[in-house]
């Protein structure tokens, strides 16, 4: 098989695709049973029947009425300006985007920098299915079953030096393949960043999949960041570079409009966007507004990262 035809599904063992509980149950059966469980799990995704959360992964920080947003919405309503600024542009314009081969560079203040083929980059880590809340800075939200690896794995493997304080992420720059980059809507390539402790937090995920499948291009294939307690624009897509640094990275939206978007971008109902309130949100797929929660419902896990910080100034 030519290398560019490789799908991560060719490399990732089938077991990873199947929910752990299902897999354990199936493991007792013959090999055919494992395959059957895989088929079953996939059928459950496709059917979208109630109670499907169980087969989609482990819920993190979900509220009582949170249910996964339909896959059709998750994969057709996207902010990914590299493929156009409309919500449906990415799904329309990214279909031919080839994500193999894909190289990820890890560099900067690390003992072990390197250029990795995506497959090698992912191989040492265990894939996990996690259902997170997602809150966009535009005051809409979703609940998304991601698949990915903890970012901490990757960073620890690279061995940050003692000077490293921040992690900077960069999206692919290729206007031929990413038509949105032909217009200076943002200062391309897209850049994002986290403080090192945020990057090492166990909730921070490098996602390669959604709804039990490889990420479709419009969702940031083949590798994207997911930081569930921050606004969605922190979730940089199609990552090609991860750089450890001692300076706060200059992030794309904060550069484009510093009065409206900050480096931290923690979900905070008490700090309004200059043009709209952040106190409530519209959940995609349902009509009534919900209250926005501090740190998007993950305060118990992450609020301590910001103790003593003025979150109004550091928006």
């Amino acid at each position: 098989m030519p290398r560019h035809d490789l799908q991560s599904s060719d490399i990732t063992p089938e077991s990873v695709y199947v929910d752990r509980r299902r897999f354990l149950a199936a493991a007792g059966l013959a090999g055919a049973g494992v395959l059957a469980a895989g088929t079953l799990a996939r059928a459950a995704f496709a059917a979208g029947r109630p109670g499907q959360q169980k087969s989609l992964g482990t819920p993190y920080g979900l509220q009582p009425n949170d249910t996964p947003t339909p896959e059709e919405d998750v994969t057709s309503y996207n902010n990914f300006y590299e493929f156009g600024t409309g919500k449906d542009d990415p799904a329309a314009n990214a279909q031919d985007f080839k994500t193999r081969p894909w190289t990820v560079k890890v560099e900067g203040m690390v003992a072990k920098p390197g250029d990795y083929q995506l497959e090698d980059f992912l191989k040492p880590s265990r894939m996990e299915d996690r259902i997170y809340r997602m809150r966009c800075v535009e005051a809409w939200s979703m609940v998304i079953p991601w698949r990915g690896i903890p970012l901490a794995d990757v960073i620890k493997r690279a061995q940050p030096t003692s000077q490293a304080k921040f992690v900077e992420f960069t999206t692919l720059l290729d206007p031929k393949r990413m038509p949105g980059q032909r217009y200076p809507v943002l200062d391309w390539p897209y850049n994002e960043g986290l403080r090192l402790d945020e990057a090492l937090h166990p909730l921070t995920l490098l996602a390669t999949g959604v709804y039990g499948k490889d990420l479709p291009p419009q969702n940031g294939a083949p590798l994207r960041l997911v930081v569930p307690w921050k606004y969605g624009f922190k979730g940089i897509k199609s990552i090609v570079r991860i750089r450890l640094t001692d300076r706060m990275p200059r992030t794309s939206w904060a550069l484009a409009n510093p009065g409206e978007y900050g480096f931290y971008a923690n979900v905070n109902p008490a700090v309004d966007h200059p043009r709209w309130s952040q106190a409530t949100e519209r959940r995609i797929g349902s009509f009534r507004r919900l209250q926005t929660l501090p740190f998007n419902g993950y305060a118990d896990q992450v609020a301590s990262l910001y103790s003593g910080m003025d979150l109004v100034r550091n928006y």
Binding site: S277, A279, T280, R282, L290
Partner: peptide, 27 residues
């Protein structure tokens, strides 16, 4: 009614709309 959901959502009141009208120049 549908976006801000004044009179519809229990989390939205006149005060919110007033703030939108006075503090958000595009509104």
């Amino acid at each position: 009614l549908l976006d801000v959901q004044l009179l519809i959502s229990e989390f939205v009141g006149w005060a919110d709309v007033q703030k939108d009208l006075l503090k958000r120049p595009y509104i």
